[in-house]
Amino acid sequence: RLHIEVEGTELMKKLVEEAKRRNLNVRAKVENGKWIIEID
């Protein structure tokens, strides 16, 4: 499991799109103003 903290929506969208393209499980949520992304 990969755990990433990202500031900025554009970067988050790119990460999520790339993960979906590779058929990975992606969860994204906002915590303290940062995107928290978990990829399995």
Score class of each variant (00 low, 15 high):
G33T: 02
E31G: 03
G33V: 00
V26I: 07
E18S: 09
R22M: 12
H3P: 07
E31V: 14
K34T: 06
E7A: 11
M12L: 08
G8S: 15
T9M: 13
W35A: 01
K13T: 09
E17P: 01
W35Y: 05
K34W: 10
L24V: 03
G8H: 12
R27W: 09
V30E: 14
E38F: 11
V6Y: 06
L2S: 05
H3I: 15
N25G: 06
G33R: 01
T9I: 14
W35M: 04
K14R: 14
V30R: 15
K29A: 07
I39Y: 04
A28Y: 13
V30H: 15
K34F: 09
N23R: 13
W35K: 00
A19H: 02
I36N: 01
E7D: 11
E38P: 00
K13L: 14
L11F: 12
V16T: 03
N23D: 03
N25Y: 10
K20M: 14
R21A: 09
E17F: 11
L15H: 02
E7S: 12
E7T: 12
W35Q: 00
K13S: 07
E31D: 06
G33N: 07
T9F: 15
M12K: 02
I37F: 02
T9C: 15
G8Q: 11
E5Y: 11
E31M: 12
R22Q: 08
L11M: 13
R21D: 02
L2Q: 07
G33D: 05
R1S: 12
I37T: 01
R1G: 08
K14G: 04
V26M: 04
V30S: 12
T9S: 10
D40E: 13
H3G: 05
E18H: 10
K29C: 09
K14F: 12
I36G: 01
V6L: 06
L24D: 00
R1Q: 10
A19G: 04
R21L: 07
L24Y: 05
M12C: 15
T9Q: 10
K34I: 13
D40P: 03
H3F: 14
N32V: 02
D40Y: 15
E7M: 12
R22G: 02
K13E: 11
R27H: 08
L15E: 01
A28D: 01
E18I: 12
E18Q: 11
L15R: 01
V26G: 01
A19E: 01
L24G: 00
E5F: 11
K14Q: 12
V30W: 15
E17M: 12
V16R: 04
V26L: 06
I4K: 03
T9R: 11
E31Y: 09
E7W: 15
E18N: 07
V30A: 12
K13I: 13
R1C: 15
E10S: 08
K13G: 04
D40I: 14
R21Q: 07
D40T: 13
A19I: 08
G8Y: 11
V6N: 04
R22T: 02
G8V: 10
T9L: 14
K14M: 12
V26A: 04
N25A: 10
E38S: 09
T9W: 15
E18R: 08
D40A: 08
I4P: 04
E17S: 09
R21M: 09
I4A: 04
T9Y: 15
